[in-house]
Design a protein around this nucleic acid. Structure first.
Length: 595
RNA sequence: GCGCUUGUAGCUCAGCUGGAUAGAGUAUCGGCCUCCGAAGCCGAAGGCCAUGGGUUCGAAUCCCAUCAAGCGCGCCA
C-alpha cells in the first residue's frame, strides 16, 4: 500500500516537473509512515516539509501543489494538508477491509517479507561457557536471540542459530579438575576444595558419575595431588596459581587419556544440561559450534597467517600481537601468548573467518553488555582479514535485575548464589519468562519482576495477549455449539458491514502488522512485536466489549468472525515468534492440557 | 582516569530515519456482568522528557558540556 502511495506521489512530482513548476533536478525522498493518530488518516508523508528548503516555498503551499496534481486512486478516499504541511492520506473503508482477506488467505505467512533479501547470516547467542548451568542472566540473551532469529527468518533472512561452545580453555581445565577433586572426596580422600574451583553441587553430581563409571581408577593420594602446588588464597596465597598448580597435577597424574575421560564427562554433562535448559525455555539451535574444532583443524593457523601475510601481526615481549589499533581498537591484542598458547581472541578470529568460509554473508552476535569491549576488536579482526566490517554486527543486551517482593535479588558466582534459568522457568512458566525478557528494548536495563511474572492476572501482559486469543477461540466454540457455523465466503462478502469504530481500529492494527515485522527485523528489536501484540489484544478486547460477534444476522456475524479470525491468526503467529504459546483457553486445567 | 550504554508520569517502560496535542501498563479514584469468558471494558487524575547550551521551519530524538546510574578497560575465558 505504501508503495502504491509512493507511486502516486512520484507521478505527481514528475508532472509538476514537466510543467516547470518543480525544478527538473529535484529528487524528493518520498517516505510514508503510518499515522499514530487516526484523525491524521492512515498514512502521512512529510515530503512537503522536506521540500520547503530546496524550493524556498512554504510547505503548505507545496503540499497544495502536489495535491492538485495527484491522480485519482480507488484506494484513496481523500488527501488532506495538515499541521505544518503534512499530507495525510485517508484510505477508503473498502481498501482497509481487504487486509482481512489477505490474512485469511496467507494465514501464518501474513507479515512475511523480503527485508533481508535472502541474506545468509549466523545469529550467535548465549554461548555461555559450559562450566555450569545457565542462570537468569543468560535468559535475556537466549530469549532475545531466539525471538530475533524468528523475526529475521520471517523477514527474508536465511538464519543459522548458533551456540559457540568454549570447550577449549583454562576454564574447562578448571572444570575438569574441580570434578576430579570432588571425585577424590567421594572416594574418601582428603581434599580442601580450591577457592577458584567450581563450587556448585552439580560438580559433585558429575563426580558421582565419574566414580560410577571408572570406580577407583583415578585415585591418587593427597601428597601427590598437592605436590608443588602454591598456597590457596585462604591460606594467604594466590587462588589463580593454586588452581593452575592443581590443574597441572591433574593432567600429569591422570595422564592424557584418563584426564581426557574426566574432561569429557564433565563437558558432556554440562552441555546436555544447558541444552535441556534451553529446550525447556523454547530456544533451539541449528548448530553447536565447538571451539575445539578450530584448534584441532587448521582454522586458527590459517586465520593468523592471513593477518600475518598482511603484516598485521608482530612480536613483542615474547608474544604475538594483532595490530588492532590500526583498525580503530584502543589497544593491540595478543593472539599467541608467551607460553605459545593461543588466546581466546585468536579463536574468535578463527571462528569469524570460519563463519564466512562456510558461506555466510553476515554474522550477528548477541552479547551481554559486559562484552562491549569486544566490538572494536572483533571488527578490527574482520577488517584485518578483508571481511567487510558492516557484515558483522554485534548487538548488546543490557543486564536484567530480578525483582522479588520489590527487592533486587542479589546474585554472585562467588557466593555460588544464583537463580538458574531452569528454576525461573519452573517458577513463572515459559510463556511469561520468554515474554518478560523481550518486552523491553534490549539496550535498556530491565527489571524482571518475579511476582508480576508469576501472577495470573491482568497485571501480567502475556496473559492479557493470550486471553484475547483464548477469547476468540471461545467465541468460535460457542457458535459451533449453537450450530452457527463459520462461513469464510459469507464473511468476506459481508466485510462492508464492518463499520463500527472499534472494527476500524482493529483493521488498522491488523494492517500494520507487516510493517511492525519489518521494523522489528530492521532495528533488531523484538520488543516492537511484543508491544504491538499488546495493542492488538487491547483493540480486540475493546471491540469485544462494545459489540457482539455472535449476532443473528448471518452476514454480519460471519464478517465479524472473519475479523476475529484474522486477529487470532496474528496473535498466535506473534506469540509463537516470541516463544510463547497461544492457548485455546485460559482456564488453568486447559492450559495444562495445552502444555 | 579513559571508553561504551542509559536517564521520559509515584513505579516499570514505549516513543521508528528529527515532525502534528509526549504514549502504554501499573498504582490511585469513579463507572460497566439477566448479554459470545470481568485474566475484560469505559472514564478521571498524573510530565521542566536529568540539567545547561547549540544545530533548524521544527528537538524527548542530532551535537557539546555537566550531573547521576550500570558496565568495561589482562599474555582470563
Amino acid at each position: 500500500m505504501i508503495k502504491h502511495l509512493q507511486e502516486l506521489l512520484e507521478k505527481a512530482v514528475e508532472d509538476l516537473q514537466r510543467k516547470g513548476i518543480f525544478p527538473k533536478d529535484l529528487a524528493p525522498n518520498i517516505s510514508f509512515e503510518r499515522t499514530r493518530n487516526k484523525d491524521h488518516g492512515d498514512f502521512a508523508t512529510n515530503m512537503a516539509l522536506t521540500l520547503a528548503k530546496p524550493l524556498s516555498k512554504p510547505p503548505r503551499e507545496i503540499a497544495q501543489l502536489i495535491i492538485d496534481e495527484l491522480i485519482e486512486s480507488s484506494h484513496v478516499a481523500k488527501v488532506e494538508i495538515a499541521g505544518p504541511g503534512f499530507l495525510n492520506f485517508f484510505l477508503t473503508e473498502n481498501c482497509r477491509r481487504q487486509v482481512i482477506k489477505q490474512v485469511l488467505k496467507l494465514r501464518d505467512k501474513f507479515g512475511d517479507n523480503q527485508f533481508g533479501n535472502d541474506k545468509k547470516i549466523t545469529v550467535e547467542f548465549v554461548s555461555a561457557n559450559p562450566t555450569g548451568p545457565l542462570h537468569v542472566g543468560h535468559g535475556r540473551g537466549a530469549a532475545y536471540g531466539a525471538s530475533l532469529s524468528n523475526i529475521l527468518e520471517k523477514s527474508g533472512y536465511q538464519v543459522q542459530r548458533e551456540y559457540y561452545v568454549n570447550d577449549n580453555g583454562r576454564q574447562m581445565d578448571i572444570l575438569a579438575t574441580s570434578v576430579w577433586l570432588r571425585y577424590l572426596e567421594l572416594c574418601g580422600e582428603k581434599v580442601v576444595f580450591p577457592d577458584n574451583g567450581y563450587q556448585g553441587d552439580y560438580i559433585v553430581n558429575i563426580a558421582r558419575k565419574v566414580r560410577k563409571k571408572y570406580g577407583d581408577k583415578f585415585i591418587f593420594n593427597n601428597q601427590e595431588v598437592y605436590e608443588a602446588v602454591p598456597a590457596d588464597e585462604k591460606d594467604g596465597g594466590n587462588k589463580e596459581s593454586h588452581i593452575d598448580g592443581l590443574v597441572t597435577n591433574a593432567k600429569n597424574l591422570l595422564g592424557k587419556e584418563s584426564y581426557g575421560k574426566v574432561f569429557k564427562i564433565a563437558l558432556k554433562n554440562i552441555l546436555s544440561g544447558i541444552k535441556e535448559d534451553l529446550e525447556k525455555f523454547n530456544v533451539s539451535y541449528d548448530s553447536w559450534f565447538s571451539e575445539k574444532q578450530l584448534h584441532d583443524g587448521d582454522t586458527i593457523d590459517r586465520a593468523l597467517e592471513l593477518l600475518d601475510d598482511k603484516k598485521y601481526l608482530y612480536e613483542k615481549d615474547g608474544a604475538i600481537w594483532f595490530m588492532a589499533t590500526h583498525f580503530g581498537d584502543e589497544k593491540d591484542r595478543v593472539v599467541t601468548r608467551e607460553n605459545g598458547q593461543k588466546t581466546y581472541f585468536a579463536s574468535d578470529i578463527a571462528y569469524l573467518l570460519n563463519k564466512f568460509e562456510r558461506g555466510f554473508e553476515g554474522a550477528l552476535y548477541v552479547f551481554g553488555a559486559d562484552h562491549h569491549g569486544y566490538i572494536a576488536r572483533l571488527k578490527a579482526a574482520a577488517k584485518g582479514m578483508g571481511i567487510n566490517p558492516n557484515d558483522i554486527e554485534i548487538v548488546l543486551t543490557q543486564f536484567a535485575n530480578l525483582i522479588e517482593h520489590g527487592e533486587k535479588v542479589q546474585m554472585g558466582t562467588r557466593s555460588g548464589k544464583f537463580v538458574s534459568l531452569s528454576q525461573l522457568v519452573d517458577d513463572v512458566g515459559v510463556d511469561a519468562a520468554r515474554f518478560f525478557y523481550v518486552m523491553r528494548s534490549h539496550d535498556q536495563h530491565l527489571d524482571f519482576d518475579l511476582d508480576l511474572a508469576k501472577s495470573q492476572s491482568s497485571d501480567n501482559p502475556v496473559y492479557y495477549i493470550q486471553y484475547a486469543h483464548a477469547r476468540i477461540c471461545s467465541i468460535f466454540d460457542k457458535l459451533e455449539q449453537q450450530a452457527m457455523h463459520h462461513n469464510l465466503e459469507i464473511g468476506n462478502a459481508g466485510l462492508n458491514l464492518l463499520v463500527a469504530d472499534q472494527e476500524q481500529d482493529l483493521l488498522r492494527a491488523i494492517a500494520s502488522y507487516p510493517e511492525v515485522m519489518v521494523a522489528a527485523a530492521r532495528t533488531r528489536a523484538p520488543h516492537l512485536l511484543a508491544n504491538y501484540l499488546r495493542e492488538l489484544a487491547q483493540n480486540y478486547h475493546s471491540y469485544y466489549n462494545a459489540h457482539q460477534v455472535g449476532v443473528d444476522d448471518e452476514n454480519l456475524r460471519n464478517a465479524r468472525l472473519n475479523l476475529s479470525l484474522a486477529t487470532k491468526i496474528i496473535l498466535a503467529n506473534g506469540l509463537k515468534l516470541l516463544g510463547a504459546s497461544a492457548p485455546v483457553s485460559m482456564f488453568s486445567e486447559d492450559m495444562k492440557e495445552q502444555a
